[in-house]
Design a binder for these strands. Structure first.
Lengths: 400, 400
DNA sequence: CAGGGTTTCTTTACTGTTCGAACTTATTGC
DNA sequence: GCAATAAGTTCGAACAGTAAAGAAACCCTG
């Protein structure tokens, strides 16, 4: 099974409906989003939910105007013709802001992942405060560009290069933006009457790839961004974004690859990032990128041997170039530890510079139409049928 | 919440009870195992299930003889005194075989994790077939030593150093045992009328640590074994063992740490394992282990920066030595990338050479009392209230 | 071309499970 | 004896699963 991302708007019919139904509804919506148009019976097969459950959920969705029905009369060997379902893409929108160092991308993405009125403008790095102001400004502008017809905005999603605590919406540290402990989600929510999420750029891009790109049917993969900022990895494990215990996972750039190397500013020795930075600079000056290809391949092989992902998606300014990918691929295939019959698949990002935006949209729809931390609960493998909502506080006293 | 491992025997009362109840029963049993003695109310708080659900499940468990009740009358500031629950440890047993290169450990472990009649004997490496025969032999002996009183054996669990496909119970490749594509679970099941699981040693040890050791309340950590076999990592992510897409995850030994290093037999360059093997050999000959400490620290920092585990548990012949741990810790603390306030905790294994055995026991109880692949379904965070069982085949036709 | 048989999609009736709220039970403290 | 507190149980509502019925198309035969 591989219906996992979970986009979906309001549906407040049963105000206190159990989380169970919400999760299953997420499953169904995600399935329709991925494979539309399809019949209720198809949804039941894909989600592994029972036909009756699907029927009940779909009728709610149709009633809420989130799903369109359309008669489709194929059937090769007889049988009743299915009623084909597809999402009403304009039932809801996400406002997304992708902050990257040369530019900030802002715009609107609908339920089906269609972008609208995307604007790219240079990022104001004159001071950290100015950068924050710019983010708030482009958010306001994007909100003003919301389509008149269709549903309302589901929320705001912001992608940031740096260490981000998604639970609090705080940017713990972004070297490139010179931000430290910035509670961006709080700032946004103070300004705009919408839920806001803040996510690390590579994790959002990985999630975008999972929702709309190469990762759609892959539950274990790595998104590796190679660009001016060095190396950043977004991990998807068991179908969910993996952040680590302290939101820190994916720092491939600061792993030692040269045991005799020099001390890096991070405290470690012989970091991949330190080695790569010189070749990235020379690349910008028009130099060759052979060294960078090798460094990328090494980082990638280390990832593959340690985590055994099904695929690796290369993204970023440099990473997604097809020739770059194929040269990295050639080296990595030689070096990676593979069991017989196993192949290593390294692919360029399918989403280009919209990857972060699409991932953010997915997170926004997940998070805010269910008021639930989606990545944690995202029902991988469609096995979860019912989910209890967390109640009360932790145990105060255990035992006697 | 941190009730995740899920041990529990028969309870066949409601033959076709939904998987929902099974999962919640697993949760409850696991909670009792970890925190016994505790009251129903404590279980409800810890599992985040409702009091009524816990009540219903516990009454089934008591009826089946798996849980013992005992009056406990503390209560500081008034209130009815709780009925304390604890597992009936001898309600079921797991037969476990831990194959390591100098020795094979076999024995029996009860529901509460108490080992019984553990036997260690030298491993017969005279030929791959002889090793297999020995495994079957010690299994038979362990079965013969089952306690006369109490429940029956739940299943057989075998831990193997090498690449293991847990789904099929096949040892894909073990260099040290010279096994290739050996369907060990099938062999065992042919010989003994019991379900059998085969798992990689480090993953089992990580799971043991999660169930009975340092990982009990930690959902993201790494178990790193350092021994004659080099480096092997068992990853626990989101509270579950992580195996990667092809059961391959955790090969820390074959990650590049010396970009200018020599070619390793694995195809990669400058592998950690290649560097470490000489110092391990010199260590056996009585030499110093400074180099090995540094190599371990490097591997460990790479792991920490990439995966951001909450703790790291060091195991294995060499890895678990307290002085070794403290010296690795000193280097790693300097080099690891930590956000302010974050600390790196590196701990020696709490379970010694019983780690693999205890992890196997947990897996056996999980797997075979529910006929369900426990790691995949293990209800992390206790959020899952109901789970649908996979039904039917995949969709044959999607869309029109 | 009518009508039965087949296939597939969809809905309905019924059962089991969980949750929330109210209720009962048991103990402390005044 | 009575209020306060906490543990445990019971009852009704909501929801998912199974099974069977209903619906809508196709195929074939006469």
């Amino acid at each position: 099974m591989d219906c996992e991302v979970l986009h979906m708007p309001s549906l407040k019919r049963t105000a206190d409906s159990s989380l169970a139904k919400k999760v299953n509804t997420m499953l169904v919506v995600d399935c329709i989003r991925k494979y539309a148009p399809l019949s209720r019976a198809d949804v039941a097969r894909l989600t592994m939910l029972s036909a009756s459950t699907v029927s009940s959920i779909v009728s709610d969705l149709v009633g809420a105007g989130l799903v369109h029905e359309r008669k489709g009369c194929p059937a090769n060997g007889g049988g009743r013709c299915p009623i084909l379902l597809s999402l009403n893409a304009s039932a809801s929108f996400a406002v997304i802001i992708d902050v990257q160092v040369p530019r900030v991308l802002s715009g609107i993405i609908d339920l089906a992942g269609n972008p609208a009125s995307i604007v790219r403008e240079p990022l104001d790095l004159s001071s950290p405060t100015n950068t924050v102001d710019q983010v708030l400004r482009v958010t306001a502008k994007a909100l003003a560009r919301l389509p008149r017809t269709g549903g309302a905005a589901a929320g705001i999603g912001v992608g940031i290069p740096g260490i981000v605590d998604v639970r609090t919406g705080t940017v713990a540290k972004s070297t490139r933006l010179r931000w430290n402990n910035l509670p961006l989600a709080t700032l946004l929510q103070r300004e705009f009457p919408l839920p806001a999420i803040v996510e690390r750029d590579v994790r959002a891009a990985a999630w975008g790839e999972r929702s709309y790109g190469h990762g759609r049917n892959v539950s274990d993969f790595v998104y590796l961004a190679v660009g001016e900022g060095g190396f950043g990895a977004g991990l998807v494990m068991n179908g969910k974004p993996y952040m680590g215990a302290r939101m820190h996972a994916g720092e491939l750039g600061h792993t030692t690859v040269d045991i005799h190397g020099e001390q890096c500013s991070c405290g470690n020795v012989g970091c991949l990032a330190a080695l790569a930075s010189t070749s990235i600079n020379s690349l910008k000056a028009g130099g060759a990128d052979d060294a960078l290809v090798e460094y990328t391949a090494i980082g990638l092989v280390n990832l593959v041997n340690l985590l055994d992902p099904e695929i690796i998606v290369l993204g970023g300014d440099i990473g997604a170039r097809p020739d770059f990918v194929s040269r990295v691929d050639a080296i990595a295939k030689q070096r990676a530890l593979l069991t017989p019959g196993q192949t290593l698949r390294i692919l360029p990002s399918q989403l280009g510079d919209m990857g972060v935006a699409l991932g953010l949209a997915g997170l926004v729809f997940d998070k805010f139409y269910w008021n639930q931390a989606s990545p944690e609960i995202s029902p991988e493998g469609a096995n979860y049928q019912t989910v209890s909502k967390p109640r009360r506080e932790q145990a105060r006293r255990v035992g006697e």
